[in-house]
């Protein structure tokens, strides 16, 4: 009997010790979770498998079969200056609030993260992968590159035009005359009027789309 009692006390002690150690150790936050996931997913960043060309994003924006979610992780000032149509502005530290939304996305959903260049967007990509592993991509070159391709020179001071993408520093390199947000023409260019751009398709859907036949 005494042996059984001692065994029970030992068992209870072990459970308490394990629980106490767990309380001290804590659960991983998004950054630590990414560190666990990195061996499996970091190669997608290194091989640039998740960086999509602006033309591909524009095509997604015009594809009615796809549920497109665009997260803009820039600060409010840059957001007010220019942002893409239907983009959602969300700070990096608030991404965890999107867990339920990401989990509710359909298999035809594509998530694209944009920032001025790729720095913030890449950090956001890691966090979203740690959060919910959605079908998520990054706009290649960021909005600076987007505006190089689709920007309207007259919208910018001194007809600024193409910005250098070298040495990215997270800043918006297109100085707009007016803070029009999504009301700039470049926020949703007409895909049929922009020059053709060749690109390597990176986006893959989790489910095949049965597209209706028609005029294409």
């Amino acid at each position: 009997m005494k042996a059984l009692f001692n065994l029970r006390v030992l068992g209870a002690g072990l459970l308490l010790a394990a629980a106490g150690a767990l309380a001290v150790h804590g659960q991983p936050d998004l950054d630590r979770k990414w560190a666990f996931m990195a061996p499996e997913y970091a190669s997608r960043l290194e091989n640039r498998e998740v960086y999509i060309d602006p033309a591909e994003l524009l095509h997604l924006m015009n594809d009615d079969y796809i549920e497109l979610v665009i997260y803009d992780v820039r600060n409010e000032r840059d957001w007010n200056m220019f942002h893409l149509v239907d983009a959602d502005r969300i700070a990096l530290e608030d991404l965890s609030s999107q867990r339920d939304r990401l989990r509710a996305l359909s298999e035809l959903a594509v998530v694209v993260i944009v920032s001025n260049d790729e720095i913030l967007a890449t950090q956001a990509w890691k966090r979203l992968m740690a959060l919910a592993k959605p079908n998520v991509y990054i706009l290649e070159g960021g909005l600076n590159h987007w505006l190089n391709v689709y920007g309207v020179v007259d919208d910018e001071h001194e007809g600024h035009g193409a910005a250098s993408l070298a040495k990215p520093d997270g800043t918006l390199r297109h100085p707009f005359k007016l803070a029009l947000g999504a009301r700039h023409a470049a926020a949703q260019p007409d895909e049929h009027r922009t020059p053709d751009r060749s690109y390597t398709t990176r986006v893959t859907l989790l489910k095949k789309v049965a597209r209706a036949a028609g005029c294409e």
């Binding site: 209870a12 308490l16 629980a19 309380a23 804590g26």
Partner: peptide
């Protein structure tokens, strides 16, 4: 209420809730 767990209900860290549940179990025994 969606995916609603004890840590969200009590506003406590998961590890603390686990410890409390273990204590509750032993107290109940």
């Amino acid at each position: 209420l969606g995916r609603f767990t004890l840590p969200e209900l009590f506003g406590l860290e998961t590890g603390v809730v686990v410890l409390l549940v273990v204590c509750l179990a032993l107290a109940m025994f």
